[in-house]
Design a protein around this nucleic acid. Structure first.
Length: 279
DNA sequence: AGCTCTTCCTGAAAGC
DNA sequence: TGCTTTCAGGAAGAGC
């Protein structure tokens, strides 16, 4: 399930392989996978990929043609992938968008998404700006510590849903929320506004460390994440709590990892993330 | 405002 | 073995 680190890996590979390449064809299979901008599809042929950015868990490709700029934005949702042609081997019926290139290192990128949670959009500049403003909060990797502190402590609610709330903090999903909370020693249900400044600063640094290590490992391939070139991410080997229900706490505290099913599968150690250790 | 529930959707895994 | 059921999950929207 692609979250921020996986989307970053995707963006990075696309950047290396295709920035500067020219689009020869852009094809959409299922029309209902395209959220907006389907009518602008013909524009993309002849445009050049200028830049690849990541917003939260989405990947935005910026194209230029003469003086015009447009974007193709892939929401990866949970099963969405952007794959080079050679890496897309199974379930061809789930390829919903293809972009063919000339002059790059790869001939084609495909948006593949079996469960179709997530959409693909075509935007001009102002549409992209509106989309981003409405949808994405701060980026956890670039937000300043003071802003993060304000964001956390002014929230009246529980910490884990806040970490995963895209309009507050864009890019963290269930896997990384669980891993971050364990490493920060914070219970998923702690009220965000009750954390001390020191605790929030620790959380800030842990968040960045976890996300950066995951990017360096190529992301987490828990079920079905593959980078555009088809390779799997290795960060799964560094997961400490996600998917580890009933296994001993890696801190060797003697307790077993528990799972709260009602809370979007919160995995945590009842000892090391004990509410009594908050203050 | 924030929480919970529902809907979307299909492959993989578990159950029988 | 082969069929059926369950589960996974992000985001949006409804209702409280």
């Amino acid at each position: 399930m692609p979250e921020l680190p996986e989307a970053e890996v995707v963006a990075c590979q696309l950047r290396v392989a295709l920035v500067g390449a020219e689009v020869t064809d852009c094809w959409v299979g299922r029309k209902d996978i395209v959220r907006e901008g389907l009518s602008s599809l013909p524009w993309y042929a002849g445009s050049v990929l200028q830049q690849v950015d990541r917003y939260g868990k989405s990947v935005a490709l910026r194209f230029v043609k003469q003086r015009d700029v447009r974007y193709a934005v892939a929401e990866l949702g949970m099963t969405g992938l952007l794959l080079f042609r050679s890496a897309q081997t199974k379930h061809p019926q789930h390829v919903h968008v293809r972009m063919a290139f000339t002059g790059g290192r790869e001939p084609e990128v495909r948006y593949w998404n079996p469960r179709r949670f997530g959409r693909f959009s075509f935007f001009d500049q102002s549409e992209l700006d509106q989309y981003c403003a409405r949808r994405f909060g701060c980026d956890p990797l670039t937000v300043l510590c003071d802003d993060f502190l304000r964001l956390i402590t002014s929230h009246r609610g529980r910490l884990k849903p806040l970490l995963m709330h895209q309009q507050s903090l864009a890019g963290i999903g269930n896997i990384y929320a669980n891993e971050i909370l364990f490493r920060a020693g914070l219970h998923p249900n702690v009220m965000a506004s009750r954390l001390s400044s020191t605790r929030v600063e620790q959380l800030y640094h842990v968040t960045q460390e976890v996300l950066r290590s995951a990017i360096a490992c190529g992301g987490s391939s828990v079920k079905d994440f593959f980078a555009p070139d088809g390779t799997e991410g290795q960060f799964k080997q560094h997961h400490l709590v996600y998917g580890k229900e009933d296994q001993p706490c890696p801190n060797r505290c003697g307790r077993m990892i528990r799972r709260l099913q009602s809370e979007r599968s919160a995995f945590f150690c009842p000892q090391c993330q004990n509410p009594r250790r908050w203050r």
